[in-house]
């Protein structure tokens, strides 16, 4: 091949690589365009009451019924359900995540770590609908049985059981991020602590964890963002009823659950129902983006030793 041809080929090749790399930007642009455009349409739709009214109703009403004849579009029940379940999930995931990460990175032998890691990875790959099945038909009956012993009745659909399952589901993800953060702490800090006579346990909790603080918080922010965006577990096991409650034993609906419920039905293009899932989706996107950016910011602030 002549050198000129080769040079041209090289330019074409590099151009092709750049082109595919920019495809990811197009995806982001596509997401933002699709969400923003239909969200604007939602808020200007006559059935929601037109622009300023619909936005006020969105934040002041306490019921969410865009699919009913009498349409109420208060977002709070969905937000409440979303954060209730995410909160339960994090209540499981935060303590267990720290314990597992500390144990695996500071205490466990190399062999144990190598044996456990693949299974934790696999836990992350289990299809979420399978977790949903387990929450509905495994965890809920168990909890009902336990609560019945104390004379408390629990609905078949509730926030507690998907919350618990979600907490275990995001555990490998958060635990491995926490572990990474703790690995980033330089060895000489540990050694300094040991040389002062501190035990392993004390070093882990009073030197390593404080030093890895921002990384650990970032890990949990990413975990929360996952819990908020998770769909199938809550769609299967949390119920389909937007409920403004903080009682984990009652059925609730999350933003993602609502999108699934509406998408399952017949959806005429640009109808009010169709637009409402984009408005809900936009809110979800903004929420998760907020948590992600906060995590990125915190990570960038990790102290360098």
């Amino acid at each position: 091949m002549k050198i000129e041809v080769k040079k041209k080929l090289d330019v074409i090749f590099k151009g092709f690589l750049l082109l595919t790399a920019t495809a990811s930007i197009l995806v982001t642009v596509g997401i933002v365009v699709a969400l923003v455009e239909d969200t604007i349409r939602f808020f200007t739709h006559p059935e929601g009451g037109g622009f300023p009214t619909s936005l006020i109703r969105f934040f002041t009403e306490t019921e969410w019924t865009p699919t009913f004849i009498s349409k109420k579009i208060g977002i709070w029940p969905l937000l409440c359900g979303t954060f209730l379940i995410a909160g339960i999930a994090m209540a499981i995931s935060i303590p267990l995540g720290i314990l597992i990460a500390v144990y695996l990175s500071e205490f466990a032998s190399h062999r144990v770590r190598e044996a456990v890691k693949p299974w934790l990875d696999f836990l992350e790959a289990v299809p979420t609908v399978v977790y949903g099945y387990f929450a509905l038909l495994g965890v809920t009956p168990l909890l009902q049985w336990i609560f019945a012993k104390f004379g408390i009745e629990m609905h078949g659909m509730n926030a507690l059981s998907p919350g618990i399952v979600l907490g275990v589901m995001i555990l490998p993800f958060t635990a491995s991020l926490v572990e990474d953060a703790m690995k980033g702490v330089p060895q000489y800090l540990r050694e300094a602590s040991y040389s002062l006579g501190a035990t392993k346990l004390r070093t882990a909790f009073q030197v390593v964890i404080p030093a890895a603080k921002s990384g650990i918080i970032a890990a949990y922010l990413l975990g929360t963002s996952r819990a908020i965006g998770e769909t199938m577990v809550v769609a299967v096991a949390a119920g389909m009823y937007p409920n403004l409650t903080l009682n984990p034993l009652e059925p609730v609906q999350t933003i993602t659950g609502y999108i699934v419920q509406v998408a399952l039905g017949d959806l005429p293009f640009l109808s009010f129902e169709y637009l409402s899932i984009f408005a809900a989706g936009f809110l979800l996107f903004v929420l998760t983006l907020f948590f992600n950016l906060l995590a990125v910011y915190l990570k960038s602030r990790v102290e360098r030793y």
Binding site: R226, G229, E230, T231, G281, L284, L289, N292
Partner: peptide
């Protein structure tokens, strides 16, 4: 980190 259901809306 975008939730998968948002890809569905896209």
């Amino acid at each position: 980190a975008v939730p998968s259901i948002v890809y569905g809306l896209l």
